[in-house]
């Protein structure tokens, strides 16, 4: 039982991170029908920028742990978001009218470009986050000691996701995003500036990915320039499990994937951990070809 609860909370924490990255995939896909393969690398950029800012600004010493990390996160989210907007302008906008797979190849090129820029700037070795930022406390829940950081992570991803959900559902801009996702042409006719909406989506998605990057740095303590591939792939799976293009689906998919993977690694086999994630994906897609919450699109004739 102890092991189960530990793995469950671990899975929830990682699932929250997956969900945050998955939101970037799913929002971009919703509006542009493009799989942004560079998204995983934006997430690594977030992790590295977080490390640089953490070490150079010393925010944690100046304004306390919680405030410092909060401020750091906001800064990184802003910076990664801006990189996201630039990425869309340079690599995707010229291809908007082209074949969909051309944009996929452009995204793969951008991904190689980002990963190798990180390697050139920070080196190919693992970089270590300072391990004494967050207090190494454990919270006692029902007689079980759960590390504080897990709860904070879950809380942080929950807050970010709620904020996003409210933004998309309740604000005017959010409504415009949803409209552009359903039908770009009709949205344009209704006076929505679709280019602006796409830029906003390319700000929000990478910003959430950047936040997830810092979370991974804080949780695991080390980051690598290639980690974006694996996390990006997992988050993409999460988005597809939930039904790509569907925002609550990405959140649900992330949590499901995190928990299944964590429990699978503990009870089935650690070596097969990544294969379990893909197996879950394949089984879910065989049963529900458009994901759990994905709407069944009728074929247009």
């Amino acid at each position: 039982m102890e092991l189960f609860i530990q793995q469950l909370t671990n899975g929830l924490a990682i699932g929250g991170i997956y969900a945050l990255i998955a939101l970037g995939y799913t929002m971009v896909y919703g509006v542009m029908k493009l799989i942004n393969f560079a998204h995983g690398d934006l997430f690594s950029i977030g992790a590295y920028l977080g490390l640089t800012l953490l070490l150079s600004l010393g925010l944690v010493d100046k304004i306390g742990v919680l405030g410092g990390i909060l401020l750091l996160m906001l800064m990184v989210m802003g910076l990664v978001g801006i990189i996201g907007i630039i990425l869309e302008r340079v690599a995707y906008r010229p291809l908007r009218k082209a074949d969909r797979l051309s944009a996929v190849v452009s995204a793969l090129g951008a991904s190689i470009f980002f990963a190798n820029s990180l390697m050139l700037i920070y080196g190919a070795k693992f970089r270590v986050y300072p391990h004494n930022i967050l207090p190494k406390m454990a919270v006692d829940i029902l007689g079980m000691k759960i590390p504080l950081i897990r709860i904070l992570l879950l809380l942080a991803s929950f807050i970010l996701m709620t904020a996003l959900y409210l933004f998309v559902q309740k604000t005017k801009t959010g409504t415009a995003i949803r409209a552009a996702a359903i039908d770009q042409g009709a949205a344009k006719l209704m006076g929505i500036n679709v280019n602006k909406i796409i830029s906003i989506v390319f700000f929000i998605g990478p910003a959430l990915g950047g936040a997830a990057g810092i979370m991974v740095g804080l949780y695991y303590g080390q980051i690598n320039f290639l980690m974006g591939w694996l996390y990006g792939l997992k988050a993409f799976i999460a988005a597809v499990i939930g039904g790509i293009g569907n925002i609550p689906g990405a959140m649900l998919g992330g949590i499901i994937l995190g928990v299944v993977e964590s429990l699978g690694a503990a009870y089935v086999s650690f070596a097969w951990k990544d294969a379990i994630a893909f197996l879950v994906l394949i089984i879910i897609l065989i049963v529900r070809p458009t994901g759990i919450l994905g709407e069944r699109v009728a074929e247009k004739v």
Binding site: V90, A91, P94, L95, A98, S102, A103, V105, S106, L108, G109, A110, S111, I112, F113, F114, A115, N116, S117, L120
Partner: peptide, 15 residues
Amino acid sequence: ARMLIFGAAMVVMMI
């Protein structure tokens, strides 16, 4: 830097 150039070249060629 070669893979960096390679990635950028992929984007440019596609555009």
